[in-house]
């Protein structure tokens, strides 16, 4: 199988604080990590490769060149080929402009299947994968919980989508775009110690607009149809603080708090 994985490196929000007074995120420990949903997409690509060793995996990402060490890490796992689309012209692209850029590159590639995550940690709009499918005139499915690795072939994929009430099983003709949801069980393979030192720069292509040749007014801030008005951390709402003692009462309080929210 010939698989393309669309991946994005996102700020690691676990290192963020939230400044309630200024209502803004404190990003002083910012570092980039592979978007968790994309880990699941790539991890599935490796499962396919394990079964069909002649499969090829290409990882495609759009972002700043600071993510090059992360792309190199993926190439050491090893992903067969990496493509980083990076140009200051593209900075500030909204999901529409991003899809235009990625789509223009993907049109030049041959593949059986495009895998992606369903949503990114930093934007969570889920708009890029369906827009890309549209540009490429392919079918698309979002929030896939599992793709059947035994049944996938260059012409068909069978997968499950978890809804609120039930899990449905689907099949789709390939080529198509399949977007996986996050699961804590997804893991990427480890590079070997020797591979960690290996120079993989020849497997990474960095493309700018010089190669893609898009009209500058269709990309970046200028080409964006939407603008970000405000960003907030979805998890950081100010809550009343309750301090409990480490006694029976305190333990009971914490236990029922967790129980009410379905954690235990």
């Amino acid at each position: 199988m010939n698989i393309i994985c669309l991946v994005k490196f996102v700020p690691d929000i676990t290192g963020f604080g939230y400044d309630y007074e200024a209502s803004s995120m404190v990003r002083n420990h910012t570092r980039m990590v592979l978007n968790p949903d994309d880990v699941c997409a790539l991890s599935f690509a490796f499962k396919v490769k394990e079964r069909h060793p002649d499969s090829q995996i290409q990882v495609v990402s759009m972002g700043p060149t600071t993510v090059v060490p992360h792309m190199h890490d993926l190439l050491r796992i090893p992903v067969d080929k990496g493509t980083l689309i990076s140009d200051p012209l593209f900075a500030g692209s909204d999901t529409y402009a991003t899809s235009e850029v990625l789509g223009s590159y993907l049109k030049t590639q041959s593949f059986d299947c495009i895998l992606s995550g369903s949503r990114s940690l930093d934007g969570a709009t889920s708009q890029v994968p369906p827009q890309i499918a549209e540009i490429l005139s392919l079918d698309h499915m979002l929030d896939i919980s599992e793709i059947d690795v035994e049944k996938i072939s260059p012409t068909e994929a069978v997968f499950s989508v978890e809804g609120e009430r039930e899990t449905t099983t689907w099949s789709m003709q390939l080529p198509g775009v399949l977007s996986l949801g996050r699961s804590s069980t997804c893991k990427l393979p480890y590079p070997s110690y020797a591979d960690l030192q290996r120079d993989v720069s020849d497997k990474l292509t960095i493309l700018t607009n010089k190669e893609l040749g898009l009209d500058p007014s269709h990309v970046g801030l200028e080409g964006s149809l939407t603008k970000v008005v405000n960003t907030y951390d979805a998890n950081s709402r100010r809550r009343a603080k309750t301090v409990v003692e480490t006694n029976e009462e305190g333990i009971e309080f914490v236990f029922s708090y967790l129980k009410d929210r379905g954690f235990v």
Binding site: V33, D73, L188, Y190, P191, S192, Y193, L196
Partner: peptide
């Protein structure tokens, strides 16, 4: 740190 290597290599990596 996050570990992106085999567990047996963690210390030297």
């Amino acid at each position: 740190y996050d570990i992106h290597c085999a567990p047996e290599d963690e210390m030297r990596v």
